[in-house]
């Protein structure tokens, strides 16, 4: 357990500047977009421009600002998401491609090798959730900046949930339903497990491993997508009932997760080469 914690910490330390960079990029781009949009509108209103009603309200709100800067608010989030998606692979390859024999040293640590796997998975999840948490924290800061720019007589308060729903990226990444958050990120975790196992297949069998990895990832995707498309949950004349289709999909997901973890642990302890 202690070794696992130390390995997680090592992964966090290795990624800390990238993580801070993503957070900084998010704040800078969103604040810049907010200032640009809001000051422009305040100047227009002060110059005698007619207020443009926003969902029935004439006054400016922070929700209005977020709604009208869709792309600029979403851009740093998408860049961060793409960066983290790439890092799911790099978190393994940097051990092999880095200085000297770092992967060798990691594999020789006096601890179960599965701790390496779990530490990398934990680190990725921690980065994802930290960025989400940072976005949640950034919104009140940005709302404060909005309040500083817009005079009190021109603005009115926003509901926090309206702000989340005002941007498509927010409502996708931070669903208001806790259950949806668990389903969404639960599926995300399984995608990471499949990617990890694919990387370990490639590291274990090298040239042939590329083929194995592609086959494995394709099989996992097909195992989920084929029943989803063929069992016809949205077809009125489907043979199976929705509850049965849901049961099958849940079982498939569990099998994919168990197979990925089991195969990953086995490859890491028996097959991997440096």
């Amino acid at each position: 357990m202690i070794r696992y914690g130390k390995l997680v910490h090592m992964e966090v330390r290795r990624f800390r500047y990238f993580l801070l960079g993503m957070m900084g990029l998010t704040l800078v781009v969103q604040v810049a977009a907010l200032i640009w949009k809001t000051t422009g509108e305040v100047h227009r209103l002060r110059a005698g421009g007619a207020p443009v009603p926003f969902f029935g309200f004439d006054k400016l709100t922070f929700t209005w600002a977020v709604f009208n800067t869709q792309a600029m608010f979403a851009l740093p989030i998408l860049v961060s998401a793409a960066g983290l998606a790439l890092y799911v692979f790099l978190i393994w390859y940097r051990d092999w491609l880095g200085r000297g024999t770092f992967a060798y040293r990691l594999l020789m640590l006096p601890t179960a090798r599965r701790n390496l796997y779990l530490a990398k998975l934990t680190a990725i999840l921690l980065f994802v959730f930290s960025l989400l948490a940072f976005q949640l924290l950034a919104l009140p800061i940005e709302q404060g900046i909005f309040n500083l720019i817009v005079p009190a007589e021109m603005r009115m308060d926003s509901y926090f949930t309206d702000i989340i729903q005002a941007n498509q990226a927010f409502s996708l990444l931070l669903p208001l339903s806790g259950a949806q958050f668990l389903y969404q990120y639960g599926l995300g975790v399984i995608c990471i497990l499949v990617a990890f196992t694919a990387v370990l297949l490639e590291r274990s069998f090298r040239f042939w491993g590329i083929g194995y990895a592609v086959i494995y990832a394709t099989a996992c995707i097909a195992a989920f997508v084929v029943p989803l498309l063929t069992l016809g949950f949205d077809r009125d004349d489907a043979y199976l009932y929705p509850k049965e289709i849901f049961g099958i999909l849940t079982a498939v997901i569990m099998v994919v997760a168990a197979a990925s973890i089991g195969l990953g642990f086995r490859l890491l302890s028996r097959k991997i080469t440096v």
């Binding site: 208001l176 339903s177 949806q180 389903y183 949950f233 009125d236 009932y241 929705p242 289709i245």
Partner: peptide, 17 residues
Amino acid sequence: LQETLAEAVLDSRSWLL
């Protein structure tokens, strides 16, 4: 409110069933 992934499958034919 927002339909979850599970509800999208489980309630998919509720109008008929």
